[in-house]
Write a protein that binds this DNA or RNA. Structure first.
Length: 288
DNA sequence: CACCACCCCTGGACGC
DNA sequence: TGCGTCCAGGGGTGGT
């Protein structure tokens, strides 16, 4: 569920709370949620998953490091320390939660936790475990190993960047928007919302968009993502800010999750179908 | 290379 | 109330 706006909301909150703080200790409860330098490619097998809670290598999980910045590309977040970088991917159900109280809450599925020099605690929780943690020696290493595989960030997507991404592809434009190699950060919610706002039907072949349509779609992608960030994201099930607040953008969804209901613009019946293995909702009248 | 089907995983919604 | 079934979906992998 966390797409670009949810991750950016988390980034902004952590930036306020963590920059300048030093990690005094870190714990990893599930070894298979972390991929460290030197680990076999593809991460750890689930066979490691029953290992008891353990301390990790000092260089891993930012131990001892002061946090200097928080970066994001698409749906991925980088917590940058003095001597190492932790890349967090939240997958479907991942959360980063801040807790200041002494008593640990009875929260399940907490796979890693950090303690900071001001007493703050940061928890990485991910019930469905589609997410994960990756450690790197530097931001440069993260860029080379992971972020180089991502397309341009959706929040600043230009019309030209979108035209390049869609060029020569006959797959449905919805599928192209979801492909992180082409555009980073757009998931099922914001793909549907941006396509609706742009008046483009999700099943249109990507390369069939006219130049004005691409320009409009790129703008609507930026706008819908920016509006969602202002609302602190869409809280449908799992998303919340590190401080436990819910986002409000789900109230502004025009098509996502509304199959069969009336279009908020024309009143016609919204259509739900499977496109690129994702439930896709659109308005047959408003989107061409 | 382009694209698609499948799989990973758990909790919540829903039907009986 | 409780149990079974289905569905949500990002992204990696392997097949066409």
């Amino acid at each position: 569920m966390p797409e670009l706006p949810e991750v950016e909301t988390i980034r902004l909150a952590l930036e306020q709370r963590l920059i300048g703080r030093r990690v005094t200790s870190a714990r990893l409860h599930r070894r298979d949620m972390l991929v460290a330098p030197g680990d076999p490619p593809g991460g750890f097998s689930r066979a490691h998953s029953d290992a008891p809670p353990k301390r990790v290598r000092r260089a891993d999980l930012l131990q001892g490091a002061r946090i200097t910045e928080l970066r994001r590309l698409g749906k991925q977040l980088a917590i940058v320390g003095e001597n190492s970088v932790l890349c967090v991917h939240l997958g479907m159900s991942g959360q980063l939660l801040l807790a200041t109280d002494k008593k640990p809450e009875p929260l399940g599925h907490v796979h890693a936790e950090w303690r900071f020099d001001d007493g703050a605690r940061l928890l990485f929780r991910d019930p469905r475990r589609f997410g994960g943690l990756w450690t790197f020696a530097s931001l440069q290493a993260l860029r080379e190993a992971r972020w180089s595989r991502l397309g341009p960030d959706g929040l600043s997507l230009t019309a030209d960047q979108l035209r390049v991404a869609l060029a020569g592809s006959r797959r449905p434009v919805k599928g192209a928007l979801l492909d992180q190699k082409l555009i980073a950060g757009v998931g099922n919610i914001y793909a549907d919302e941006a396509l609706f706002a742009a008046g483009v039907h999700p099943s249109r072949p990507a390369c069939s968009l006219t130049s004005p349509e691409s320009t409009r779609l790129a703008r609507e992608i930026r706008v819908v993502l920016a509006r969602a960030i202002k609302a602190k994201g869409s809280s449908l099930r799992d998303h919340m800010t590190p401080d436990g607040a819910r986002g409000a953008f789900q109230l502004a969804h025009k098509v996502y999750g509304r199959g069969g209901q009336p279009c908020r613009v024309c009143g016609g019946k919204l259509q739900a179908e499977q496109i690129a293995q994702r439930t896709t909702v659109s308005c047959p009248a408003c989107q061409r």
